[in-house]
Design a protein around this nucleic acid. Structure first.
Lengths: 344, 344
DNA sequence: CTGTTAGCGCGTTCAC
DNA sequence: GTGAACGCGCTAACAG
C-alpha cells in the first residue's frame, strides 16, 4: 500500500499538501492539486485510517454492545445502528455480551481501547458496575439502548413500554377480559418492569380487581413454564399477555402442551411478536417495537452529543405499534361467562 | 487516559520495560515487573489499540460485510462471526451492503483503510468487479460467506444447497408429488442457482417428466407473485417449493390471496423457513441453514489462512437440516389424483 | 500558496 | 536485565 510520502514525492510536493488536498483543509493551487490527484490515481493511494485516527484523536467509529445478538429485535437494532452510522461515515464495531456481565465488561474495555468516538449500549440484566466505572473514567459519549435506566447520566433510547402495555390492556379490557394471565418475566430488566407497570396502570384505572389476574415473574424460564401449566390447569383466565418474544415462545408452548387452543379457548397477546405472523394461525396480536428506528435514533443522539457536549441527558421514547390480530380479536366469550362487573 | 510514558515514570523504568511486561516479550526482574504492574493498577492504564496496531501492522480486528443485515439468516451469521471472533480476541467491524454494489464497494474500501486483519464477505448479487480489484491490490485474507463463487481465489463457506434441495425433492417425490411449482427467485445468486440445480438433479434421476413442473425465476418479486397467481389459477400442481425465506413470504401471500390452503389444497416446503414454526399453522417444512455455524466457520478459515498463508483456497460446505412438518407432510392426495407414472 | 517539523502512543531494534 | 532512540503514517502548528 502506498503511503502519503510516495504520493508527495510523485507529485513533487510535500506531504502536508497532499494531506490538505485530501482533507480540503486549505486552498491549494488547482495545478498542484491536479498533480496530487494524479499521483493518488497512479498509486491507488488511500488514507490509513489508523495513523489518521491516532493523529486526529478521533476514529470515526462507534461501538455497539448488544445483550443478545441472536434475538431478532436486537438484530434489527444492530441493523438500524449500522444504517445510521454508515450514513454519517462512521464505521461500526459490534460486540455481543450474550447477557453475561463479564463479557459486557470486556467488550466495553475493548471498545474504549480502540478509542471509538461513541458507544451504544444495550446493557445486560445484571450489568456490572465496573462498566460504569470505566465509562466514568473515560467519559466518552454513551447512549443506552432499549433498556432505560432511571437516573443514568447519559442519553437513552427506549420504547414507550409502559404506555403501550396500558393501551394493549385497555383494549383487552374493552373487549371484556378481566382475568389475565400475565407472563411478565424478569422484572429486574427495565423493559419488562415497565411493561408490567403499564398493565397495572390499566387495571387500576379501570377499577378492575387486580386479584382476578395472575402474574408470572422471574428470570427462570422453566419456572415460568411450570407456572403457566399450573395456572392453565386451574383455569379461569380468558387472556394471556406475554411481555416479550422469548416469553411468548414459552407461553405458546405451554398452551399447546396443555391442550389450550388460541384463540378458541383463550385469547393471547404479546410484545415483540413474530415475523410474518399474518401468514400463520393463530396470527398473534402484537405490540411491535420499532427496533430499527431505535438503533438509528441512538446514533442520532450520539452525534448530537458529539457535536454539542455538556447538555443534560435526553431520553427518547419511541412509540410502539399495536397490531391487533386473530389471537386476541377472535376470542369469543361464552354467553354465560362472567365478563366482570361493568362497574363504570 | 494514562499513556505508557506515565506508567514508566511512575514505576521508575523505561517505556520499553513497560511494553515488555505487558506483552511478555522478554524477561524482566520480578521486582521491577511488580512495580510496573502496580503503576498500571494505579493509573488504570490500558494499551491504546490504535498506536499498537499502527506499530505492529496488525489490528486484531476483522471486517464483515453482509448483503442484508435485516434478513434473520444473515443476522445469525453475524452472530456466529461475532462469537468466533470474540473468542479469538478479534473485534468485529460490521458493514451492510443492503444488496447495493456501490455500498459494498465503499464498505470494503473502508475496512481496508482500517487495516482489518481479514475480511468476511457475503457478497451481493451484482457485486462490482472493483471489489475484486481492491482485494487483489491489497491481498488481505478473505473468506466468502454464504454465496459460493466457483473459481474464486479465496476460502469460502456455504451450505450444501444443491444436495439439500435434492434430498428435499426426493422426499417429496417419494411422497407422491410429481407436479411442482418451484419458486426459484434470482438464479444469478449462487445459492439460489444451486438450489434450483438440486431440484433438477432429483427430477432427472427419478426419471420424472420435467415438463410437469413449473419454475418461477427472476429478481423481481412482483413478477414472482404474478407468476404464482397465474400458476395457481391454472392449477394442477401438488406442491410449492420456495428457494428462500423472502420468496416463501411472497409465495405464502400468493397462496393465501388465491384462497389455496396449505396443506389442504397444496403442499409447501421452503429453504430457510420461519422461527418457531412449530407453534403455528401451517407449520412449514424447512431446509434450515446452519447460519451461526457458517459465520463461525468463516472466522475459522480466516484464522487458518492468517496462520499459514499460501495454501490453496478451501471451500467448506455445511450440511443443512431437513425439518419435515405439516405443510408438506399432512397433504393428502386425492384418491383419483394422477400421482405420476411410477416408471421405476 | 506551500514546506518543514513535531508529535499522536506504542513496539522494537541496538547498545549497554 | 534494562534504556535510548527510531519510526509506523498521518495531521497540525508554525514558517516562509
Amino acid at each position: 500500500m502506498a503511503t502519503i510520502v510516495e504520493v508527495a514525492r510523485l507529485a513533487g510536493v510535500s506531504t502536508s499538501t497532499v494531506s490538505h488536498v485530501l482533507n480540503g483543509t486549505r486552498n491549494v493551487e488547482p495545478s498542484t492539486r491536479q498533480r496530487v490527484l494524479d499521483a493518488i490515481g497512479q498509486t491507488g493511494y488511500r488514507q490509513d485510517a489508523l495513523a489518521r485516527a491516532l493523529r486526529r484523536a478521533r476514529t470515526d467509529s462507534i461501538g455497539l454492545v448488544v445483550s443478545d445478538a441472536g434475538e431478532p429485535a436486537f438484530a434489527e437494532m444492530v441493523h438500524g445502528v449500522e444504517h445510521a452510522a454508515a450514513a454519517e461515515g462512521l464505521t461500526l464495531i459490534l460486540a455481543n455480551s450474550a447477557e453475561d456481565p463479564e463479557r459486557e465488561k470486556r467488550a466495553v474495555q475493548t471498545l474504549l481501547e480502540r478509542r471509538v468516538d461513541g458507544l451504544v449500549l444495550a446493557r445486560c440484566a445484571e450489568s456490572s458496575s465496573d462498566v460504569d466505572a470505566y465509562l466514568a473514567a473515560e467519559n466518552p459519549p454513551v447512549v443506552l439502548l432499549d433498556r432505560v435506566f432511571d437516573g443514568a447520566p447519559c442519553d437513552q433510547v427506549g420504547a414507550d413500554n409502559r404506555e403501550s402495555m396500558r393501551r394493549l390492556t385497555e383494549h383487552l379490557l374493552g373487549a371484556g377480559h378481566r382475568r389475565f394471565l400475565v407472563v411478565a418475566g424478569d422484572t429486574r430488566v427495565p423493559t419488562l418492569r415497565e411493561r408490567l407497570a403499564g398493565f397495572q396502570d390499566a387495571i387500576r384505572s379501570a377499577g378492575t380487581d387486580p386479584a382476578s389476574s395472575e402474574l408470572l415473574e422471574g428470570p427462570d424460564f422453566a419456572s415460568i413454564r411450570a407456572g403457566m401449566t399450573a395456572a392453565l390447569g386451574r383455569g379461569g383466565h380468558t387472556c394471556v399477555i406475554s411481555a416479550s418474544s422469548p416469553l411468548a415462545v414459552t407461553a405458546l408452548e405451554s398452551l399447546r402442551d396443555s391442550g389450550v387452543s388460541v384463540p378458541g379457548d383463550i385469547a393471547f397477546a404479546t410484545f415483540d411478536g413474530f415475523n410474518h405472523s399474518d401468514l400463520f394461525r393463530p396470527s398473534v396480536t402484537t405490540v411491535r417495537q420499532p427496533a430499527f428506528e431505535m438503533g438509528a435514533a441512538a446514533v442520532g443522539l450520539l452525534l448530537a452529543r458529539l457535536a454539542t457536549p455538556g447538555k443534560s441527558p435526553r431520553i427518547t421514547r419511541l412509540q410502539q405499534r399495536l397490531e391487533l390480530r386473530s389471537s386476541s380479536e377472535d376470542y369469543l366469550f361464552a354467553a354465560t361467562a362472567d365478563t366482570g362487573s361493568r362497574s363504570s
